[in-house]
Amino acid sequence: MNNTVIDVHNISRVYNPDTIPVYAVNNVHLHLQRGEFTALVGPSGSGKTTLLNMIGGLDKPDAGTIIINGMNITELSPRELVDFRLHNIGFVFQSYNLIPVLTAKENVEFIMLLQGKSKQERDQRVQQLFKEIGMEDKLNVRPAQLSSGQQQRVAVARALASKPQFILADEPTANLDSKSAANLLDIMALLNADENITFLFSTHDQRVINRARRVITLVDGKIASDTAAVDISQPHKFETV
């Protein structure tokens, strides 16, 4: 069975191609296996977010192909991409990006509603996810009443709600204090270990890098280093923050 979840073939993204071309991502080749816990690191402007956006189907490469679970997403129309994202990818953004007018529960439920899940299914999943993130008592609280760490945990629950193939997290701990960041990483590591969910982070945060099982470094849009695929069948020892 093919375990490759993300298969990136020589993709490039060029800004200002007609004037002064800037290669945000330059001929990147990358494979991620199911269950990987990978950090994408590099200085600002190295192309981490652009690469993440392209893998997430939010942006299109100017060259190359991206195959997710055997599907070439670079050939999908914008409408197909919306549907693809909904059913295959979980997103965690740097600034949480919860919908402020919805409660924590409704934010998580929102994705499942878009997927057309039944109320019973939604309720079960919400209960399960809030248990996993340890926020069963905050179901009906609006984001404004939650701490940064709690908001990001809800964002993780939301990303997981649709049972995606993998989760893309753009600087998930950037706005969190140490304790909240550690707590969030614990949750994500647990989900990775227990449910075999693939995580790909873009990060500057050494705490995240320390806990990643694979670290890919981007410099000027190119992969400068890759700690390479590890044997994911082997249990991984996380470093403590």
Partner: peptide
């Protein structure tokens, strides 16, 4: 917020 909703899969 709208961008985020679209990213998550809101058509």
């Amino acid at each position: 917020e709208i961008g985020m909703m679209m990213a998550l899969g809101t058509n």
